[in-house]
Write a protein that binds this DNA or RNA. Structure first.
Lengths: 226, 226
DNA sequence: CTTCAATTATCAGAATTTTCATGGGGAAGG
DNA sequence: CCTTCCCCATGAAAATTCTGATAATTGAAG
């Protein structure tokens, strides 16, 4: 779990940073609004701790920007201003929680845990995806099945990830080519079939149960049932 | 949106209740732990405001019980105890947020909005159609009746979906062939009859009540009555 | 109550569509 | 220059969809 801290006061920033790293969270620090906003849009960030008063760009603005780009990324607002009006403004900007300085570190930690728990519980963005006995390592970009590591090319990985994130529902060729190839599907190509075929050889050929199923006239469905 | 308030102090309870109702939330109040726990398990509750100190059963216990029965139901803890230790305990019990008395109503409202927004954002409605004991899973593209999964081809699915979306009204062959086959009905074909026949074998043959009914000279009507 | 025409149900293949599997050419990157 | 990856093209195989013929049912008239 990686947490981005957007805070201009070095003492506060390092206080949080060290406390979190002691609890085995990865951290990243940004000292102003613009660089923080940019950092928040990088992949791999699981939560943002955002000070309301920072140089460069207002914390409220940064929060709105983060939330419009990625609504599922939890933002915990942090500020010395403790009046109700400020809190309401913070929530309206999309913040998921609000903490007033000075605060005790255990409370910060508890609120972070709550936000992350909710996140993994609802929008599950783990480091790997699992379906039946197949695991897709999102960091190493490889698949693992039956104890064997299966290397994947970029397109193969992308297709398998799309399948696994949408297990249990029929995906049409149009869906697949739009999401994985970002093309408008025209009947003149059969890339989807070719790559499904390649994936089958890699992850289904030597294993049971089969995970990629054809639904003729509809598309494909991924999963261990049926 | 309906909010359950578990709070023993009548003044606080009615203060929250009236404030929320002014904002067009429906409310329900329970004055002790046991009745609150029971009320939280009724369907229709979207959020619980839970006082930590209540008679009958400890707030922490009630919270754990609610969360084990329905992890997606947001719980906002409310208490006069403002120490960090208490907050951590509350979060550990599964509370999604924590507010210390005395509080300003706008802040409570802001926190409630935040929790509800998250809920509606994540809990997506399952896409399926139901008529009598027949269910059509629009994601998996299969029918389910009497606990049995019934596989369908593309045309069969399309026809059944059209029937189910228009249950209780007579559909002529012209309607059906235009919507399902996207052809202008000419009397030289009997595809509709053929496919109705196939569907009947799959979803009606082994079950009661019958759902596909012929209206001679008019077309077909779908539903459990007549 | 029977007969008859119109309508609907059923069935077996034929026709069509859809999918699988494979080889090869071109582009990208070391 | 060589390897890897991506996509197109092709034909075979499989499944679905449709046709056309025949059987069954319905409703009305005799």
């Amino acid at each position: 779990m990686k947490i981005l801290i957007i805070e201009d006061e070095p003492r506060v920033a390092s206080f949080i940073k060290e406390g979190l790293e002691e609890k085995n969270y990865k951290t990243e620090v940004a000292y102003d609004g613009l660089s923080g906003e940019k950092a928040a849009k990088e992949p791999g960030i699981d939560l943002v701790i955002l000070d309301l008063v920072i140089p460069g760009k207002n914390g409220i603005e940064v929060c709105k920007s983060i939330k419009s780009a990625n609504p599922d990324l939890p933002v915990l607002m942090l500020t010395a201003l403790g009046t109700t009006a400020d809190k309401v403004t913070g929530f309206d900007a999309g913040a998921d929680d609000y903490l007033v300085k000075p605060f005790d570190f255990p409370e910060l930690l508890a609120r972070i845990k709550s936000l992350l728990k909710r996140k993994t519980h609802t929008t599950q963005q783990p480091e790997s995806l699992k379906v039946a006995d197949l695991e897709l390592d999102l960091l190493r970009k490889v698949a693992i099945r039956g104890g064997r590591v299966i290397e994947l090319t970029a397109k193969e990985f992308s297709l398998l990830e799309y399948f696994m994130r949408n297990k249990g529902r029929v995906l049409s060729r149009v869906d697949i080519s739009e999401k994985v190839w970002e093309i408008t599907y025209d009947t003149g190509t059969n890339v989807v079939e070719v790559y499904v075929n390649i994936l089958r050889k890699k992850i289904d050929r030597d294993f049971e149960p089969k995970l990629i199923h054809t639904r003729i006239g509809m598309g494909y469905i991924f999963g261990d049932q049926q």
